[in-house]
Amino acid sequence: MENLCALYGFEKSRIKDIPFPLNIIGNYNALKKQLESREAGLELIFVEEDGQRRLATAKTFDTGMTLFYFPVAPLYDLLKIGRQKAFANLLLSVMAYLHQVTGIPHFREDYIYLGSIYEMTEEWVTEGEYCEDKQEQQFMVDHFEMMYERGDYTLGRMAAKIEADSLESRAKRFKAKSETDTELLDCAEKLVALHRDYPDKSVMENMRRPTETDYDDGYIRAEQYLCFYWSGVDCVQDQLFDTVNAELNEYGAIEEPVSIQYFDTVQEKPLHNMDYECRLFEILHGLSDVLYDLEHGKFNGQNQ
């Protein structure tokens, strides 16, 4: 506590004549109040590690309770059609980097949340509980077969190291000739700059389970709101989002990126820098807009 007071210029607590551990609790609450008045969003916490409790400050990046689901169907279509090749390759590099380096999972990987939701919906279809019409049921069965096959293809391409490594060179060569081109190039260039400043950093490495809940209570995990999925305009997307929203609405807390600074040693300056997260999620919003345009027929980059 002395180290924290020294860093922030707080007066040392004057709580006296209170037996242990109540004196610790009193000092903690007094410091917590001072800290919260100093900087919004900065928390004072105890972290349990290796059987020891460490005093620390924590700052959480607010993701806005948003589902960052990125469809891979547009990528598949672009790669298979063979037109707009430069656009398709740049989009592939952006998505490959986000998958490989940033750590955003793909629904066709093992034990991924959205993959399990798709599998559950497929079971409803094959067991005849989802649709009464046999022709509609066969259409849905065929759709899942197609989705899994094409999903595996996009995962394979996105997992190839050369695709992520080619991000900067493809961004430099790309000539934007439309609004959608410009939006994608903006995402790519910002991602290149982010990589230069934070090479090999993953958004998942600073994810921390909420302090106000324990594991049994349940909370929204990062991979439940941050993932590559198949499509936002196919025949199962309504069921997908209904199921996800119903399940996630049951939880009262969410796993988000957190910056931790420990005070069991002297600290020279505050270390809560959320620059990486701010820049990354700006890129993710931009990519979401690009993919939305592609899926809703607003792609006007017919010149690639």
Rank of each mutant, 00 (worst) to 15 (best):
R150W: 04
G156I: 07
F139D: 05
H143P: 00
I162Q: 15
V141S: 10
Y148I: 13
M147Y: 02
A159K: 13
G156A: 10
G151A: 11
F144T: 00
V141I: 15
M147C: 02
K161P: 03
M146Y: 14
D142C: 02
Y148R: 13
M158Y: 04
D142E: 14
M158E: 12
M140F: 13
H143R: 04
D165R: 09
A160C: 12
T154M: 11
R150D: 08
S166Q: 06
E163Q: 12
Y148P: 00
I162K: 15
L155W: 13
M140L: 15
M140C: 03
A159L: 12
A160L: 13
D142R: 07
E163V: 05
A164E: 04
K161Y: 05
D152C: 01
Y153M: 14
D142T: 01
M147E: 05
Q138N: 01
H143M: 03
R157W: 05
M146P: 01
M158R: 07
V141M: 10
K161T: 03
Q137T: 02
R157K: 14
M146V: 00
A160T: 07
F144C: 06
S166F: 05
A160E: 15
E149M: 03
D142L: 06
Q137K: 15
A164P: 01
G156K: 10
Y148Q: 09
H143T: 00
K161N: 11
M158H: 06
A164C: 09
M158Q: 13
G151Q: 08
A160F: 11
D142P: 05
D152P: 00
F144G: 04
T154F: 13
F139A: 03
Q138P: 00
M158A: 06
F144Q: 02
Y148A: 10
Q138L: 09
M147R: 07
H143S: 03
Y153P: 01
R150E: 15
A164L: 03
M147F: 09
M147S: 04
M158K: 07
R157A: 14
Q137S: 04
Y153V: 03
A160S: 11
Y153T: 06
R157E: 15
Y148E: 09
A160P: 10
R157Y: 12
Y148G: 02
I162N: 11
M146N: 12
D152W: 04
Y153Q: 04
M158T: 12
E149K: 08
Q138H: 08
R150L: 10
Q137I: 01
R150T: 04
E145P: 00
D165K: 08
E163L: 01
V141G: 09
M140Y: 13
E163S: 02
I162D: 13
L155M: 10
D165Q: 13
M147Q: 09
R150V: 00
D142M: 05
I162S: 12
M158F: 04
R150S: 06
M147G: 01
R150Y: 11
A160I: 02
A159C: 06
